[in-house]
Amino acid sequence: MIELTNLIKEFGDLTAVDDISLTVNKGEFFAVLGPNAAGKTTTIKMLVGLISPTSGTAKVCGYDVQSDPIEVRKRLAYVPDFPFLYDKLTPWEFLRFTGQLFHMTEEEIQERTRALIPRFSLEPYLKKSIESLSHGTRQRIAIVSALMHNPDVFVLDEPMVGLDPHHQFILKEVLKERSQTGMTVFLSTHQLSVAEEIADRIGIVHMGKMVAVGTKEELHNLGGTNNAALEETFLALTREESDVVTQRQLQQG
């Protein structure tokens, strides 16, 4: 479903993503972890086609993101950490707009949103202007709009930011359900517990490289001591996280 091959992105003298190769299968829930400025968002941006890679390829459902962008986007949904919504529309108008973009009929739009809207508690807000809504509510609208067209691949960048615990739980539930029915989920997060709890496989990105990929158990074994917590493994692999920018400059220099 997702196939990243030798993906590199350079910003001047800085290599933000350094030769990442990865395959995420259909129905797999893949979580990407990494310290700040590790290259997670840049990888996601290349995966969804927002930026072009310096070299390497990104494929979604067999289509190259750069050469077949439309085919990719038809099968993909993306929710960034701060999603864009049309402020002057109501959530319902926005959801209909998104549905129409994906060529859904009125019946399909109503049917699918009817299932999603109550789960994300959006009914009271459907007729309000989006500009008057809180960050968390906007985030939920963005998630619903992304899920309503049943994407094959769902990419989320820090989706838990701004969501209350209840809706974090709902989101995790929904993502689990969807991945079980064949949707591939690619999620970046700082919350190790989220990754640990729901991801089939976890990738740890550090200084632009994918330093570790594996199941929860496999990663536990990488921590130095058998069955170490994911946190320990993460810290072991991404030591000196707070000074990551300096490290990268040193690496480049």
């Binding site: 969804v48 927002l50 962008p69 439309i70 986007r73 993306y78 999603p83 864009f84 049309y86």
Partner: peptide
Amino acid sequence: NQETRFLQTLPFSA
């Protein structure tokens, strides 16, 4: 403009 980035991930051609 954020709208451009939003649209770029939807099934719109450039």
